[in-house]
Design a protein around this nucleic acid. Sequence first.
DNA 1: GTGAAAGCGCTAACAC
DNA 2: GTGTTAGCGCTTTCAC
Lengths: 352, 352
Amino acid sequence: MSREPQTRGRAATLEDVARVAGVSRATVSRVVNGVRNVDPGIQSAVREAITATGYTPNHAARSLVTRKAGTVALVVSGAGDEGEDTDPGFAARVFADPFFGRAVSGIIGYLRPHSLHPVLLFAETEAARAEAIAYLRQGSADGALVVTTHPADPLPARIADTGVPAVLFARPALPVPLSYVDLAHRDGAALAAAHLLARGRRTIATITGPLDVLAGQERFTGFREAMARHGHAWVPFAEGGFTLASGETAMRRLLDEHPGLDGVFAANDLMAQGACQVLRERGRRVPADVSVVGFDDSTAAVTANPPLTTIRQPVEEMAAEMARLLHTHIESGAAEPVAVVFDPELVIRASS
Amino acid sequence: MSREPQTRGRAATLEDVARVAGVSRATVSRVVNGVRNVDPGIQSAVREAITATGYTPNHAARSLVTRKAGTVALVVSGAGDEGEDTDPGFAARVFADPFFGRAVSGIIGYLRPHSLHPVLLFAETEAARAEAIAYLRQGSADGALVVTTHPADPLPARIADTGVPAVLFARPALPVPLSYVDLAHRDGAALAAAHLLARGRRTIATITGPLDVLAGQERFTGFREAMARHGHAWVPFAEGGFTLASGETAMRRLLDEHPGLDGVFAANDLMAQGACQVLRERGRRVPADVSVVGFDDSTAAVTANPPLTTIRQPVEEMAAEMARLLHTHIESGAAEPVAVVFDPELVIRASS
DNA sequence: GTGAAAGCGCTAACAC
DNA sequence: GTGTTAGCGCTTTCAC
């Protein structure tokens, strides 16, 4: 079953295959790399020799001459604490976010067919950031896909400095000469506003994301502006932190101040879920008494009770596009930074 | 701020540094690799030349001669469907499991200080498995850390065949000559039984995990045996699937058949959480009327309502141990496969 | 269409 | 303590 030729001793090299096939190394290389101009007869002879020897190309050797690592760094950049110790829970927290799984899913989807492999790089401390930069400069990866949680993350700028191709998820707070993929957050929020209004809601509040994060700001601004366009100059709001608990707290405050509200737009699904819980706790039926709209269309939107009407952020496609952009930049050498902005979409479920 | 010497043209090589410092390549190499026997004066001259040139060692070149990739494959092996298409949701589902985040956290914790980098490898289809094997045989990774969800996964055996060092999470269903890290599931279940009994519970049921998964079997067996030792020869049970929904379903069945039950052991926290919901729905107070014990001590245990008494599985430490074992195997060349089994621990919270 | 030969950037004997 | 010299395994002109 598991015959493993050439298992003893060192692994087979191009040289070994060439000797067995009775040709030169160059020819074997051509066959392996699918270069045309090789006689069909010789071609099959070489193939036989390859299976006979159990040959597998040595990646390092190939990399050395092609100057391609076949690898892409998946950099998850964190809060940016200057703390000495690495944050042990960082990875766990990142992975706990449904967003990350979807992003990885999309990234893998593109990378795999192109024989690129993602190397996980967490950069949550200064030391880790320095290490990540060193890693990139070593040429260990052909490029970097960067996901940041922190608004004022210094890493993107430093990556740009290395000259290694890189693509960011979301527009950086400070301009950086790197390509990025983003969502039209304002349009998404406007979609939510229009929907709530179309449902006949009149007293509509919003639970914002953290207002020092761009996405938080944009969703808030977009919502307010859309409401204003429909004649609602003032929108009651409470700031949340994109977590379930913060959604609950915000909802309580909103309800205390505006007991008569009949519509809520939460800047993400987790907070919308928290809002629903509090609403029910306070005797409001969702959606009979109050309509709730979330944002992201994460797994939370589907598992919530009731399932959430939400603004879909196509994370998988956005992540795949990141990978595609990066690949393009790697292939083309230079290339100007570009921004690809995706359109959100209203997904109607039971909460509105 | 961001001076980047030698940015134009090719990156600096050892040769360049040697020329600038007026020494030989070998000496620079010695300094870079911290080999003693280098004159302090020359040492600092070399260091200066290094910063002057902006030198960074080329990873591929180093790899080629040291035969070390500085990389470890993090293989997540899936259901093993023979389906043609790759499963788009696989990565997302894996990441959604709190277990995975904790495992990665522990792995990174060990790998990082040892300058090893994890490459993500999903192997959920036959094609992906073949690719993963090829990747390992190329020498792109020095070893593999394998996490399998599927009981009859063919991948571990094939990895063993490659001769590349590898360590598994959990004992494989079929014996494979690879090291693994596991938990004493039976002891954990026994801990749960003893605790429930100590709480004065008399009619105790269990929601098992999937019984075709080793962990599911072991937790069930351990629980039954412990209960038997305490005079409870028969334990009502319902099989679940380690998901929240399956916990709910199982709890309903159990309650229908044994309305008087006053204790439940669920084989994981998610199912325990589902059980609590159903219990409350049916008018039982937790823990006043029914004590509930989960397993894993995942994030679900803490966020559940009420917070769950559970059996802690030290995933981070287990994962770190995997990495440590792998590192040892890589360094020592051969080495016999070993098994490291961790002890579970009772964590008491509000549900019992 | 195929082979010979040069070299990618680095480490590691081995001399001195 | 430092320099010289071989390669590591591969791709890629350049002749033929």
